[in-house]
Nucleic acid binder design. Structure first.
Lengths: 213, 213
DNA sequence: CGGGATCCCGTCAGATACTG
DNA sequence: CAGTATCTGACGGGATCCCG
């Protein structure tokens, strides 16, 4: 049960002994969005074997990174305060990995939690601060997200709602966020379909969520 | 040879497919200090099997993270520009892991490169900017480092040199950096031995390198 | 001697089935 | 729904060997 050790005394090796095992940081990524049940984690991490998920949850719990909370009938996993301090790590890792993303491979899926964290990664609070509050309803593949930007605050939740701009796109929304595609070209090429609201608001979206490749 | 995939399309999973395998981030940590030869990496990562080191180097090269550079007779590995962009990730991970460090376990060693990166992690550029240039000669366990702070710049190299303060300590230098121990108590308890220079300069060291637990 | 490649073995991950 | 049990295959660990 004890995580495998690297035989070194240092910050990075200590961190990797706690969260360096396969799947661990993806579990933490999803828990950064909010507390999740076992089945929700398994659903978001489609290809994780259930025994591995169970093992990781125990290890992360033993390491003080997550907590197992019984809520009346159901059991929920959530990050401890110390686990929540991994947010800068996940955001930095996500920003770096974002630049390496190419076209989605066969059988690569988008999940609500991974998309939510990618949006948080690309979020530009300084840009957003000077823009009026805006709500977006985005359908990305099969994932529906309701995105509210207000000042330098960002809130992303699953589902829809009354939005200033509603749009649908696929995995290549990445090309809009990276700046590879202008908002205009994204619409004319069909990468983004505007379902409601003014087209110009996609400009605002693209400047609010931007991560150069 | 292709890295194992997570079946997800997202920034974090993409990153982990490139640098998420065991030992990979420790190799990158050491290469952030400077280009290294195969044997130097093997020396700094004492417990890595040579086949794993060889496999990781190939994978990281294929992923565009490192480069294999023949220098006349010898071969040197170095980070690509894209690989160097992992520095914020390593620093964030190191800062997080630093807080989880307890006493060194049996057979846990300190290496020059891991110590160098830990110092970079703990470095407070804003504090340093308002202090006069200072050079420290530190012997940490068997590791000798020459640390120069000038304005908000930090330079750490192996070996010694003419320093304003020379001191020796063990792994529990961590307790000074975390603030668990004041500089005064660190000296009186013998955690830090001042070998040359004025004792008061250890105050400056402790404020320049600080990471609360 | 530096820079690996090869071999064997143990452990972990992956897939599926099963249970309280 | 929240895991446990079991089996198989792949990867990591350790030692040894090889080649320029």
């Amino acid at each position: 049960m004890a995580a495998r050790d690297y035989g070194q005394y240092g910050g990075v090796s200590s961190a990797l002994e706690l969260v360096g095992e396969r799947w661990a940081l993806l579990i933490i990524r999803d828990l950064l969005v909010g507390p999740r049940r076992y089945g929700e984690l398994a659903g978001g991490l489609a290809r994780i074997p259930s025994n591995i998920l169970a093992a990781r949850l125990k290890e992360l719990q033993a390491g003080g990174v997550i907590r197992r909370v019984p809520h009346s009938r159901v059991i929920v996993y959530e990050l401890t305060p110390y686990g929540r301090e991994l947010e800068p790590v996940i955001l930095a890792l996500g920003a770096w990995g974002f630049k390496a993303m190419g076209e989605p491979r066969e059988a690569q899926i988008i999940t609500p939690d991974s998309m939510t964290m990618d949006l948080r990664t690309a979020f530009q609070p300084l840009v957003a601060a000077s823009l009026p509050p805006t709500a977006y309803a985005a359908r990305l593949g099969t994932v529906e997200l309701f995105i509210r930007v207000e000042g330098s605050d960002l809130d992303v939740v699953r589902g829809g709602g009354p939005a200033d701009l509603a749009f649908a796109a696929g995995a290549d929304i990445r090309r809009l966020i990276s700046g590879e595609l202008t908002p205009d070209r994204a619409i004319t090429t069909g990468v983004v379909q505007v379902l409601g609201g003014r087209n110009e608001l996609l400009d605002r979206f693209a400047t609010t969520f931007h991560l150069a490749a």
